[in-house]
């Protein structure tokens, strides 16, 4: 499937594909990124000293950041399991960075096994199985989406509440949901 043809600016693709590392193991980071590698590393919040390191010596999270740095000049940036190895603080930082990069007329395609990675980030989600699009939506709150993939905990919470007859809207922000629960219980 030609992923670059998918519609959207920041696109989430839920796939059962098994991700594997690119064949960069013995390459130095500066050789993978090429010209102006120090600037590219700075943009993805890695010190320029990483330029001298081998790809295989980095943890998964830093490898993913290098993959982003490598593609910064591309019109279409494809990232596999990008948030692997990141803690919450980093996830928030890199979601904001991806939004900023996308604002420079770049299409970002994130491949993941879970919708949770896409919350408050993507403008369209595709579910791809066996190289075929089986579902697509612009709305992560769309219940139909979850016929194909598992619900993130925040969506699962509202779904189970609705099953009990509670009139609760879907939220993707923790604090918005907290306030809504509080209002209903008050």
């Amino acid at each position: 499937m030609e992923l670059s043809l998918l519609e959207g600016n920041i696109i989430g693709v839920v796939t059962t594909q098994i991700f594997s590392n690119p064949g960069y193991h013995n390459n130095k980071i500066k050789d993978i990124i090429g010209d102006k590698y120090a600037d590219a590393l700075k943009i993805v919040n890695l010190d320029f000293a990483y330029g001298e390191k081998l790809f295989m010596d980095l943890d998964a999270s830093k490898q993913n950041k290098v993959r982003l740095a490598e593609q910064l000049n591309n019109k279409v940036i494809i990232l596999e399991d990008f948030f692997k190895g990141m803690n919450n603080k980093e996830i928030i930082f890199y979601k904001n960075l991806l939004k900023k990069i996308s604002s420079y007329h770049k299409k970002i395609i994130l491949l993941s096994h879970h919708v949770n990675d896409f919350l408050n980030l993507v403008d369209r989600v595709y579910v791809i199985k066996d190289d075929t699009i089986v579902y697509q939506t612009a709305d992560l709150k769309n219940e139909e989406l979850y016929n194909y993939v598992s619900r993130p905990p925040i969506i699962e919470f509202v779904y189970l509440s609705r099953q009990k007859g509670i009139k609760l809207d879907y939220y993707t922000e923790f604090n918005d949901l907290l306030k809504a629960i509080y209002r209903l219980k008050a």
């Binding site: 803690n87 603080k89 980093e90 905990p153 925040i154 923790f174 629960i181």
Partner: peptide, 16 residues
């Protein structure tokens, strides 16, 4: 402070 969030259910329960 170390950058980790709590699991969703535990975090929400704490706030509630």
């Amino acid at each position: 402070r170390l950058g980790f969030a709590l699991p969703f259910a535990i975090d929400m329960a704490k706030q509630l």
